[in-house]
C-alpha cells in the first residue's frame, strides 16, 4: 500500500521509535534526482525553534511514514547527515523555487513542493508548481506528474513539452494523471 503526499507536509513531522521515544522531527526530504528515489530525511531537534541534527535518517531505517509520525525501529538506524547528502546529488530543498522549463524552452512556473509516493519505497512522482502565463491563469498552484526521468538542478527542472497539458489541481486527480503519463512507452518520450 502506498500513499501520495507532499514533501512539505512531512516537514516537522515527529520521528518516533517503536519504543515510543521522540528523536526529532523531519527537516528535509533527501532524494536522488536521477531516479527520483527518496534516500532519507535530515532531522531537526524537537520543538519549534530546534536546530538541525548531525544525524540523519536513511530510508532503510524508516518503519512507517504515518499521518502523525514517522516511525523508526530504534536509535541505531541513523547515519551521518553529510554521509546521506553525499550519496545524494540534490536535496528537494534546492529545487524549491526553481523554474520548470519545457524542452522547448517555455517556463511553466516555479517549483513549490515535491509530490512523493510513499510505500515500501518512497519516490518522487511529481511537483507542485505555481504557474506562469504558459498555464493560465498565472499564479495558480497545480500538480505536475513527473514523466519518468527529468533533468534537474538547483536552478531548473526540464520536462517534456507534453506535460503542460497534464497538470491537475489536487492529489486525487494526480493518481490518475501519473498512471496515464507512465503508460506512454519509453521510446515515445523525448529525453532531455
Amino acid at each position: 500500500m502506498s500513499a501520495l503526499m507532499q514533501a512539505t507536509a512531512l516537514v516537522g513531522r515527529p520521528v518516533v521509535t517503536l519504543a515510543g521515544d521522540e528523536i526529532g522531527q523531519v527537516k528535509d526530504v533527501v532524494y536522488t534526482v536521477a531516479d527520483g528515489r527518496v534516500t532519507g530525511f535530515t532531522l531537526a531537534g524537537r520543538g519549534l525553534l530546534a536546530g538541525p541534527l548531525r544525524r540523519a535518517l536513511p530510508w532503510a531505517g524508516v518503519h512507517a511514514v504515518g499521518p502523525d509520525a514517522v516511525m523508526i525501529r530504534d536509535e541505531d538506524v541513523f547515519t551521518d547527515r553529510d554521509e546521506l547528502a553525499e550519496r545524494t546529488e540534490l536535496r528537494d530543498h534546492n529545487l524549491i523555487g526553481g523554474t520548470v522549463l519545457t524542452e522547448g524552452g517555455t517556463a511553466l512556473g516555479t517549483v513549490d513542493d515535491v509530490v512523493l509516493d510513499i510505500g515500501a519505497s518512497a519516490d518522487v512522482v511529481g511537483y507542485r508548481l505555481v504557474t506562469s502565463e504558459a498555464i493560465p491563469p498565472a499564479g495558480r498552484s497545480v500538480l505536475l506528474p513527473l514523466p519518468g526521468k527529468v533533468a534537474a538542478s538547483g536552478e531548473a527542472l526540464v520536462v517534456p513539452e507534453s506535460v503542460a497539458g497534464l497538470v491537475v489541481d489536487d492529489l486525487a486527480e494526480f493518481t490518475a494523471a501519473v498512471r496515464s503519463v507512465r503508460s506512454v512507452p519509453e521510446g515515445e518520450r523525448s529525453c532531455a
Binding site: P14, V16, T17, L18, A19, G20, E22
Partner: peptide, 10 residues
C-alpha cells in the same frame, strides 16, 4: 503493546 517512551505509547 510495543513501547512506551517520551513521545507516546506505541
Amino acid at each position: 503493546l510495543i513501547g512506551c517512551g517520551s513521545y507516546g505509547v506505541v
